[in-house]
Amino acid sequence: MSEAHSEASVGNAATFDTHPGADAGVTPESPLQWSRVQGHVTEEGGAAEQIRVVERPFLGHLVLRGGAITLDEAVRAELGVSLPGKPLGLVLDAEGSRSVQWVSPDEWLVIVPAGEEFELENRLRARLGDAHFAIVNVGGGQTLLELSGEKARELLMKSVVYDVHEHGLPVGKAVGTVFAKTSVVLRRPTEARFELVVRRSFADYCVRWLRDAGREYGLRVESASP
């Protein structure tokens, strides 16, 4: 892969750093801002309930498109993890803060800590050269909710049509499925928690649904301060 190629490929696709930078004095608002104003979301922390829902806002979300063979080496080199080897796989890096999820045979969702996504996109593009692939930054369009607690599974049974039992959704699996009257990406990164990737415009609906469905168990929705 030559330097000339990688430059050409960057020229063919427009990359764009969406962040103003820390010194710009711009405060972002998470997709749950309106829910927070409405009192549906509280500050992180507080009394333990049977279910905790915690928003992880502002993470970097990239959609990778391309064949597994094309992408695998670049992802391994730049992210330190391999692409999931089989459909519906979800892999995390050693810290557990970067993940790659199988979405379809030629689509992966990469989630990385806030602010890493632009650099990662550029590095991947450089490494992939003129191979046929696409990288799309979708970080502003979705947010991640973590669900934990002993009743989290029951809460999900009320909400998603997918089988959330250990047999259906073991650790290391992720699926797109129906959530109430919308859709989410449902992930099982660790034994202790589930994750929902929800679209920004549906986030308030999802949170209101979770609060309503979780009322009988006791449920808090929390988010980091804006």
């Binding site: 459909p87 519906l88 379809s104 049509v161 797109g176």
Partner: peptide, 12 residues
């Protein structure tokens, strides 16, 4: 045939 498992009709 892509996800390699049975799924509910509502997803389709």
């Amino acid at each position: 045939p892509y996800c390699q498992e049975y799924r509910e009709e509502e997803e389709f």
